[in-house]
Amino acid sequence: MSRELELTEVAPLPGGESLTAEGLERLIGPFRRGAVPEPAEEMGFYTDTSVCIGCKACEVACKQWNQLPADGFTFSGNSYDNTGALSAESWRHVKFVEQFSVWEAGGGDGGAMPGRWLMMSDVCKHCVEAPCQHACPTGAIIHNEFNNVYIQPDICNGCAYCIAACPFGVITRSTLDNHAHKCTLCYDRQKDGLVPACAKACPTASIQFGPVEELRERARTRVEELRRRGVADAWLYGHEPTAGYSRLNAFYLLLDRASVYGLPEAPRNPWLSMRGDYLRAVLSVLPPLAVLITALLRGR
């Protein structure tokens, strides 16, 4: 039996396409453009860590809805955090910070203060100016109609530049398909008018979903309320732009410094350096070119 005959006898692919058609589709398909959706209201997450109880319902709901694989059963020794980090397989990650020795050692009036838990459900920040989106050379990473950062899984080729660009360490490449994956802010659910799975499952409303402006107002009110009640350290992370970074469409109410939660204290968009770096590189062409020209003219 010839090889050609074998190929023609391969079971047809779903939809009855031949291998040639499949190959052609792989080649041409990525260049097709669909209709651009109409811009919709900007949506996002507001995560109030002051009410997070570390139940991990968000992690479970995210994995269930998005059909993400399990992380395995690995004991980390780091409190109740056995997920470890955000990754292509874990789009929500509940962090556990145990502040016992520090707090018990130094009380405000010399007496020992009770220790405390800080818990936080981390997720992609859906940056308004997203370094991963700037970096992506295939156009796989886009801002969708809800102004959320979305990776088109059929376009990503796993170059990993988005991983290098993200200052929050959100994205990794999947061990299953070698493409980059992260939180989609349940784009599919949003399109059907549903709340993202994690926010739906959160039993304490620590994860809140909605129009971003509304969430910001709600978060500001909550901070004021907490401060009135004596929680002086409450503050918002990412709700306003800074000198080095845009605002985040998934922002947080924190009770300690950002680094305690594993967030960069002052994230900086790498693209702020791009023009200067290009300029230095372009100008640096002139001396070697001048040296080469001089040497070759003299050597004639």
Partner: peptide
């Protein structure tokens, strides 16, 4: 990514 025994502040934020 394997779970790490380091505190979050001790780990680099980037991957």
């Amino acid at each position: 990514p394997r779970p790490s025994p380091l505190s979050y502040a001790e780990r680099p934020a980037t991957k």
